[in-house]
Amino acid sequence: MSRTIDPGGLLDASARWRLTAAGVCLIAACYGMARFAYGMFVPVFREEFGLDSTTSGAIASGSFLSYCVAIVAASLLTPRFGARIVAVAAGAVAVLGTLVIAAAPNVTVLAIGVLVAGSSTGIASPPLAHAVARTVIERDRSRTQTVVNAGTGIGVAVAGPIALLAQDHWRLAWVAFAVTCALVTAWAAASVPAARGASDDASFLPVPLLPVGSGRLILAAAAAGLASAAVWTLGREVLVTDGGLGETRSLVAWIILGCFGVVGAAAGDLIRRLGLRGAWLATMLAMAGGTALLGSFPDLLGVAWFAAAAFGASYIAVSGVLLLWGTEVYPEDPAAGVGLAFLVLALGQAGGSLLVGALAEAGAQFAFLTAAAVAVAGTLVRPRA
């Protein structure tokens, strides 16, 4: 296993890079392929399985539910069983889910595969955040956390072109996703340290369920979830229906969103320059701007693609800020802090999806501007000084 530079378990430079690279790839595989790729293949699934909008939406909601259950379980299990075991479990679940989707003979099996694959994302984030917090030297910790978190953008950027090119051979695409997830899982098994509780053994001190500062974290994560729901829920639909961009150009917008999501890796450096409060303000305002632009000018290709880029970069950065915020609120149990932040973020997105769906009846632009306003309001909730 990885060498360390002191008895406390801090990794040397080479081991840190291996952990970072493996973490980025695991997040990319679980989020970009196992979870978010479903939305890219919905048009094909509708044709293959006769899905209607209600059924496809119910499957997506089930994926959200499995994510919430998984992230709670991973947050509780990581300090006891160690980061490596839980991270490998995330990859294994992603492999299983993507293989079930690839082999699905009917809509019921497809739904099961999507639920299993979607749960891998909830399992993946807490152990990686815990491993970084326990084994990376303090000066590199924030940057490493946000770089790993930006793996989501890489996954979406890779899955997008595959979805674009493999529409008629979608089963092969999902087999390719499964093989990729398997390779990444093996890498995680070799590169992620055990990193259990504070003393690296199974007996760790319990932490308060809601310590000081957790209330602000919950409100902030809920606001981010509500604000981001418009783009995640209606973004492609608005580009196709209101903007008239078609399936291909709207999917390209999603690829751009994923590519620029990698910029969100700079959230750690942004926090070092502006502090947690300043970074939260900047990234939420940027997300508000991208959301407002996408909803207001979906018919202008250049503006729409720029808005997708701005949203992708800012959303990943926002989630990176929430990740670091969670580890600060729960310094003794980083997995719990990340789990709480990302759970509330997902719950906010679920509630936001219902809200923007209802508001869209009065016009998509109104729904998107409302979401942007929520992001601006969310800047009023800031980390403790």
Rank of each mutant, 00 (worst) to 15 (best):
V376W: 01
G312M: 06
D140M: 11
V116W: 09
A307Y: 14
A373L: 08
A117V: 09
G352M: 01
G151K: 10
G23R: 12
N149H: 02
L285K: 06
A373M: 00
S53V: 13
V148D: 15
R141C: 03
L99D: 07
F177I: 05
P331M: 11
L77V: 00
A173L: 00
V318M: 10
A34V: 00
C30T: 11
V95I: 15
L281F: 15
G378Q: 02
F311W: 12
P211V: 08
G312S: 08
L172W: 14
E332I: 12
A358E: 12
F366Y: 11
A267W: 08
L257P: 09
A198W: 10
A224E: 10
G275C: 07
T233H: 00
G357S: 02
Q349C: 03
V329H: 03
G62D: 14
Y330D: 13
R236Y: 04
A375T: 01
L251V: 06
R84F: 13
V262F: 01
V114Y: 12
S142R: 10
V374M: 10
V95E: 09
A83W: 11
M33W: 09
W232D: 13
A224Y: 08
G261E: 13
G363A: 08
D52K: 05
A15F: 05
D6P: 10
A308K: 02
